[in-house]
């Protein structure tokens, strides 16, 4: 059943102090992840990646190459996991579906007039249904940031609830595009709206706007997930996307998830990285950790 907007039960207005958040994040960044925990962490990161291509120039050829990489990250090194999913435009879902037919890698599709979301609800719903019908396991929608900033919170809520309904069996990730929300107070409010409207995941960014998935923003969203879980016992997933291109930053994100939400969230059912170039950096780190040699990009395939 579609959820309806009820501001009184949902949002006791929660304020966020940015400087306090920065200090908390700095603490995560001083965690020292060494030896066994580093290797384990890096493998987790690989397994949490939504390998992404979202460009106007995407072609079936490009998507097929990326889908192969998703399943064969670095075949010379056995025992590595594959990524969690590939993330493509709705028009490419069919191609990806075929390329990943025998794979456990999931297919995520952006929708709802990605990335701006500036279209009618009817178009957004049919956009979503098309992607789901083509075989997308996951839908990454964008919220209407203009409406949000204009104070039309119930519009934003209702739209998410409608898209959730249109998703059918597909899991819904709600992109807040935090780089356009201006304050962490807004990030928190938008997170609460998305979660209460039925999001399975909340996601920071489209990757088209800077800043994207900063740790401050991700932390704020994780706290919203934590509060909702503490109140209802329902888990919601988190996907920082955009800007996480190094192993170090990815590990800091894992530290943050572990310390805020606990080990239960440390699987690709509940945590994802939206990234295009992270995987190879992680692979290089893994090989470096095992061999002790610093690596060159020449030895890692680009797809």
């Amino acid at each position: 059943m579609r959820k309806s907007f009820d501001p009184t039960t949902m949002l006791s207005h929660i304020t966020v102090d940015k400087v306090g958040v920065e200090e908390r994040v700095a603490r995560f960044q001083t965690r020292s992840i060494k030896s066994e925990s580093k290797l384990q962490g890096l493998k987790m990161v690989l397994n949490m990646i939504d390998l992404t291509t979202l460009e106007g120039k995407d072609t079936p050829g490009k998507v097929q190459q990326m889908c192969y990489k998703a399943q064969h990250l670095h075949d010379v090194h056995p025992g590595l996991p594959c990524v969690a999913a590939v993330c493509v435009y709705p028009s490419m879902v069919g191609t990806a579906k075929k390329a990943l037919s025998n794979s456990s890698v999931k297919i995520a599709s952006v929708s709802t007039a990605f990335p701006s979301g500036q279209s009618t609800r009817e178009i957004k719903i049919s956009d979503t249904k098309f992607a789901a019908d083509e075989g997308a396991d996951e839908i990454d929608m964008v919220i209407s940031r203009g409406k949000f900033l204009a104070g039309e919170h119930s519009f934003v809520f209702d739209e998410i609830a409608a898209i959730k309904e249109a998703c059918g069996k597909a899991r819904l990730k709600v992109i807040l595009e935090t780089g356009e929300l201006s304050t962490l107070d807004n990030v928190r409010l938008a997170s609460d709206i998305a979660i209460h409207a039925g999001a399975d995941f909340i996601k920071t960014s489209t990757g088209k706007i800077q800043p994207a998935a900063t740790m401050q923003v991700t932390y704020t969203m994780l706290m919203a997930i934590k509060d909702y879980f503490d109140k209802t016992g329902i888990m919601v997933g988190m996907k920082p996307a955009g800007g996480i291109s190094t192993s170090k930053l990815a590990l800091h994100n894992l530290v943050m998830v572990k310390e805020v939400l606990g080990n239960a969230w440390l699987s690709n059912d509940w945590f994802r990285f939206g990234a295009s170039s992270l995987a190879n950096d992680v692979l290089m780190q893994i090989i470096k950790t095992e061999t002790g040699l610093y690596q060159s990009t020449d030895y890692f395939s680009i797809d």
Partner: peptide, 16 residues
């Protein structure tokens, strides 16, 4: 293909 297990490890703890 590599495997997509939903959980790489039961617990992730910091090494000393």
């Amino acid at each position: 293909a590599n495997t997509n297990s939903s959980k790489i490890a039961p617990e992730w703890n910091y090494s000393p």
